[in-house]
Amino acid sequence: MNGKTVGIVGYGSYVPKFRIDAEEITRIWGEEAKRVKEGLGIQEKSVPDIDEDAATLAVEAARNAVKHAGIDSKEIGALYVGSESHPYAVKPTATIVAEAIGATPNLTAVDMEFACKAGTAAIQCCMGMCVAGMFKYGMAIGSDTSQGRPGDALEYSAGAGAAAFIIGTENLVAEIEATCSFTTDTPDFWRRPGADFPSHGGRFTGEPAYFKHVISASKMLIEKTGVKPAELDYAVFHQPNGKFPLQAAKMLGIPAEKVKQGLITPYIGNTYSAASLLGLNSVLDVAKPGERILMTSFGSGAGSDAFLIRVLDGIEKKRGRARSLQSYVDEKEYVEYGVYVKHRRKLKSL
């Protein structure tokens, strides 16, 4: 970018251990399990423990990222946490994370919010600042313990997870060759202050929101870089359900096989700010040097950030330093709807 190489120095993930099967939710609301699972492409979703929130998830992912990168936390000059479930309305999640990874006090830190894409916006900020030489490393995190109103379609998808990326200009595992964004004012999904659950436009969240932004940003990146869809080895899209990313890939002429490695919503639900980043995490866990990845996020309200990423030789020697995303996906314990309600404090009295 601007004649300088910038990219990913290390990354880490975290997914809570508990899961609820979509079938268990259909049991409560009298819906047909097969229809819901096939319709949304979601088998089960992650459920945070009672003592977990977006900050604790972010800390676990950030600690894994530091281990993976093998850097001194004190060299992190900026730390951004993107989330729509920050534990405080006022008081940053980013300071909690910075303290917990030992990056304080010589850094800048701030919380970001843009529905599901604040984490990728944080990566763009870190890229610019690293290229400008303001500091050696920046950390961008997407973390959410997302909420869905009981009985709403979101209840099948709203999961919990976090992904952290350390951005820098040297010692890279992958280069970010280019990035661009597509942003409009589109009222597809929102949550007002003090509201417990988000509201959304139902079908309106699809065509004029998700697809318009994801496709436009991806196409803009493809035109800007001249990369052909056939030259891409993997494509990762924001994944509010298990279906949308496959449809987006089809619209862009990318075969479904290139999307599957980065599609994890069917197993852990939509992790909002972490969703596309966990998809990228999953791809980087298996990608070989030289392979190219398209990642396009989406945040309601609405916007998409697209990235073209090339995996570098450096990825091999850092593999296995921190826990893999797959190990978190595989370590699970199912809970019943009642326990899920307690964990998510969905009863007013909790």
Binding site: D49, D51, A100
Partner: peptide
Amino acid sequence: GAPVEMVFRKI
């Protein structure tokens, strides 16, 4: 005697 490791949680 069971091995354990630290995690970061809300107290």
